[in-house]
Amino acid sequence: MRVNEKNILNILLSKEFWLLSLIFAYRELKIKFAQTRLHYFWVILPPIMGFVITTFFFGRLFKISKDIEYYNIYAYLGMMTWYYISYLFLYSSTSLIQNQDIIQKSNVYRLVFPMAKVFMGLIDLFCWIFGAFVISFIYGIKINFGIFTLVYTIPLHIITGLTFGLIILLFSVKYRDIYQIVPYIISIIMIVTPIFYHPYMIPEYLRIFLHLNPIAGVIELYRSAFLDGTYPIKNFTLSFIILILLFIVVLLIFHKKEKQIAEYV
């Protein structure tokens, strides 16, 4: 898929675009585990660490952990969502700079590089989700039909992370000032999003802001898939609609700016 393509739909529907994204994801994966003895085996480390942290640290230390049944899996799901979103936030926004040499000398469609990060992160995400099933099994949580909501939760999860990453990327094509504040944005979002705590703990009058946060929405979607009696999802409908519209706009802007990228990156 080449940069000269006029219509973005042609690109997104072509097999070549997805195959290219996959091969670049394969490249990232190979680079990540180059010269390691255990190789791909390391992908199971993040979920295990997530389980250890939520069960033995937060589960014991936090007062709220006593109010919530199965707190460790509750926090684990929050952590899982956050892990993937922050990954996309950080890496899809810098993916063009990372592949500078390729971008300046090849006409591979530029969206391939953020997309490669999506696939790369998906490997971790699937390990986390698999981990969630294992933990549910260990704690004897019954998995009901709610689990099928994962079919749209995962795409929504990807879109959330990718939209944030692409926004940062678009703002930083010519001037990279925005990268200076990205770490602070990430930590602020981490605090305002109920990852380790319950949304009910946020005061009533501030909850409108919570409802505009699609990351909180994705977390609650995962929680409702695995656990019962969580925060009602319909509160987040508006934020999801805004998110998807934003995603489409961001893609269109990216497609328009795409030709200039090689000059500035």
Binding site: R27, K30, I31, A34, Q35, N99, D101, I102, K105, S106, N107
Partner: peptide, 14 residues
């Protein structure tokens, strides 16, 4: 098809 530099995108560890 443009071959603007030889071994474009080659990574040393692969």
């Amino acid at each position: 098809t443009a071959l603007l530099s030889s071994g474009l995108g080659f990574h040393k560890d692969l």
